[in-house]
């Protein structure tokens, strides 16, 4: 099983519902976030192109954060998701330094925190909180190893990109373009 997220940038309106849902579901402390919205504007007026992306940990196949963790607190969980075991984390910050997406942060309690693809919900057969609340249904979540899954079909039929593929991390959050 290879869990992945596909986000349609043509449908995202940048409402930040996914951000609020994540903060609520995962009890993210005030001032912090596990996901966020990025707005990119390309071109020059009047030929401008706007892209909205809901970004988070990319749960990379080749995760530098897992590789550099000195205690093994950062590890691969079910379906290739990248997780942090709080009681093994020493808060050295090496994983934060190693992430090209700046997707991790130091929780006020000291350990390193990040998106988990809502693994506690996925275990119960639910979708991640961000995906379940998206009002434009621009986010998809599923198993890439299953060729019949919605995410597999989308990636077969649509053009897509990943963020900073040149970093060699093999990110598993795909953006339909």
């Amino acid at each position: 099983m290879r869990l992945a997220m596909v986000i349609d940038t043509k449908k995202c309106v940048g409402c930040s519902d996914c951000v609020v849902a994540c903060q609520t579901e995962n009890d993210v402390p005030i001032g912090y976030c596990r996901d966020w919205i990025t707005e990119t504007v390309n071109g020059s007026y009047p030929s401008l192109e706007l892209e909205l992306r809901s970004e988070r940990c990319n749960h990379c196949d080749n995760s530098p954060c897992v590789r550099c963790c000195p205690t093994g607190a950062s590890h691969y969980g079910t379906g290739g998701t990248v997780l942090v075991t709080k009681n093994e984390c020493i808060g050295c910050g090496a994983c934060i330094e190693s992430c090209p997406y700046d997707a991790r942060y130091q929780h006020p309690k000291g350990y390193i925190d990040k998106c988990t693809f809502c693994n506690h919900r996925v275990k119960e057969g639910l979708l991640p909180a961000c995906v379940s609340v998206c009002p434009t249904k621009c986010m998809y979540f599923g198993d890439l190893d299953n060729s019949h899954s919605e995410v597999s079909q989308l990636l077969r039929n649509r053009k897509y990109k990943t963020l900073a593929p040149e970093a060699g991390t093999k990110p598993q959050v795909y953006y339909l373009i």
Partner: peptide
């Protein structure tokens, strides 16, 4: 021009 900004108020 390429301009990129967080619009969800990220300030970690």
């Amino acid at each position: 021009m390429k301009e990129e900004l967080f619009i969800s108020g990220r300030n970690i």
